[in-house]
């Protein structure tokens, strides 16, 4: 039997908002240590790697390892039916065909129950090598979201260049160019700080379309971490409260 409970459904609602535009379906791997998802978009340009630790749940039980194929669209519809303060419980039997979502509203004697059919999935799983990145940048997630939105108006790609001086985002198109530069802040660890750990300067271009999907995770946490090395995929990481993280990988654009 599998059972996972969160007293506030808000976090799970935000998680679904962060993946629903990128993924149509995904396998949720449930083990004693938590829930893991690794899934690529249909074009294999980006990948979502998500981890929700069992100790982050208010109640967690997983007697047997389960691989549950879920429609992200349906799961998102179900979670829209919960209010942010509702307690959410996910439950499945061993070898399940369905997963159950239950919402309890505090102080009310109302329980809503939704059952979702699982799907058989034949998903490609990728081995992601441990990488030491040339630049690791931490910056306010809202600032990052704003830059991605603003620059997307001027071109299809955003070029990210990182040096000791700071990080520069640029876009260029038929109508002109746009550049936003951020310097490292004096203090670190604050929600509005910008920190740069650099071994080597980098310059890479990425599709705005995907970066706009990633910034849907902004409500999850105040800081985003960008890991960059020349000619390898970008990692864009958001913490999911105290319970886990979501990492987006994005393949770079390369000169023809």
């Amino acid at each position: 039997m599998f059972e996972a409970r969160l007293t506030q459904s808000a976090i799970l609602k935000k998680v679904l908002d962060a993946i629903k535009d990128l993924l149509t379906e995904a396998t949720f791997e449930c083990t004693d240590s938590g829930i893991q998802v690794q899934a690529m978009d249909n074009a294999h340009v980006s990948l979502v790697s998500m981890n929700l630790r069992s100790d982050g749940f208010d109640k967690y039980r997983c007697d047997r390892n389960l691989s549950m194929g879920m429609s992200i669209a349906v799961m998102s519809k179900i979670l829209k039916c919960a209010t942010t303060n509702d307690t959410v419980t996910m439950r499945a039997v061993d070898n399940p065909d369905t997963i159950e979502f239950m919402f309890d509203t505090p102080g009310k004697d109302v329980q809503a129950q939704y059952e979702m059919k699982l799907i058989n999935m034949d998903q490609e799983h990728l081995g992601i090598p441990e990488t030491v990145y040339s630049c690791v940048v931490k910056m306010p997630s809202q600032e990052f979201a704003r830059i991605v939105r603003d620059l997307s108006q001027f071109g299809e790609n955003i070029t990210i260049a990182c040096t000791k001086e700071g990080i520069k985002f640029s876009a260029a198109g038929d109508t002109g160019t746009a550049n936003v530069k951020l310097a490292q802040t004096a203090d670190s660890g604050e929600s509005d700080s910008v920190t740069i750990e650099m071994q080597e300067s980098v310059k890479l271009s990425f599709s705005c379309r995907y970066l706009n999907f990633f910034i849907k995770a902004t409500p999850l946490c105040e800081q985003v971490q960008l890991s960059l090395s020349n000619d390898v995929p970008l990692v864009c990481e958001f913490n999911i409260g105290e319970i886990g993280h979501i990492k987006y990988y994005l393949a770079p654009k390369i000169e023809d």
Partner: peptide
């Protein structure tokens, strides 16, 4: 111009 790469050229299939 710029060509979009895919992740399968960077990561190995398990």
């Amino acid at each position: 111009g710029n060509k979009q790469t895919t992740l399968t050229s960077f990561f190995t299939k398990k």
